[in-house]
Nucleic acid binder design. Structure first.
Lengths: 119, 119
DNA sequence: CCGTATCCATGAAGATACTG
DNA sequence: CAGTATCTTCATGGATACGG
């Protein structure tokens, strides 16, 4: 016992941890958002700039979903001009190892952009 | 130097490692497929059973995409009835830490299924 | 057993314009 | 600055039926 074969009886009908996890962070920009927030709190437009090409509508939506998942918090300051800050919750910070693992893997194994002009 | 602020100048216009990595493994069943293959080679229908509710068409497609990304290999045996085996490549196996991290996180933080009947 | 071939519904996300 | 409000496009993935 102890180790056992943890891959044997992994019936995923009805939801399983990996699927569950992916569900919460799947979305075109979510991984990236989390990665950037690992560096600390960011305002809406700071985040926007870092992501490069995301639209306001989309960024807002992804942030709201991450908020609902309990991965980040949204803090609104009653000032003018408006100021809204996003930070990771503890739950979100616990993704640090995973996201940095993805980052490292992404460097080690870039997308194979078709084996053209090769041969 | 050395550490520096690696979050500061992380301009993702034009593709960045995290985005790149996510691109290769995003798909409704891909994370799960990789997870199951961490336990070793599997045949098409074994995989199918483990995923629970995936259709043939969809599973085939996700497998082909993972193959094209170089994450797994597809070995066809010229026997009848047909036999096709899927296994992770080295590139795929390097995702082990990430996927197991997701698995652990998914257990620790299930999806917050609305705070109903709670209060 | 391991797929293809069709057809189709859904929703994710971009473009664009406007507002407190 | 930080969003809404619309409208539209497109890819994902399910359902179903058939084939080597």
């Amino acid at each position: 016992m102890g180790k056992m074969n943890r891959f044997e009886d992994y019936d995923c009908s009805g939801g399983c941890p990996v699927e569950n996890a992916l569900e919460q962070i799947s979305g075109k920009w979510k991984g990236l958002i989390i990665y950037h927030l690992l560096g600390g709190t960011l305002r809406f437009n700071e985040l926007r700039r870092r992501l490069g090409t995301v639209t306001q509508r989309t960024l807002t939506k992804q942030l709201r979903e991450l908020e609902e998942a309990g991965i980040l918090t949204r803090e609104v300051y009653a000032v003018v001009p408006p100021k809204v800050e996003y930070s990771l919750t503890e739950k979100g910070q616990k993704l640090q190892a995973v996201v940095e693992g993805l980052h490292a893997w992404g460097i080690a194994f870039p997308t194979p952009r078709a084996a053209v002009a090769e041969e």
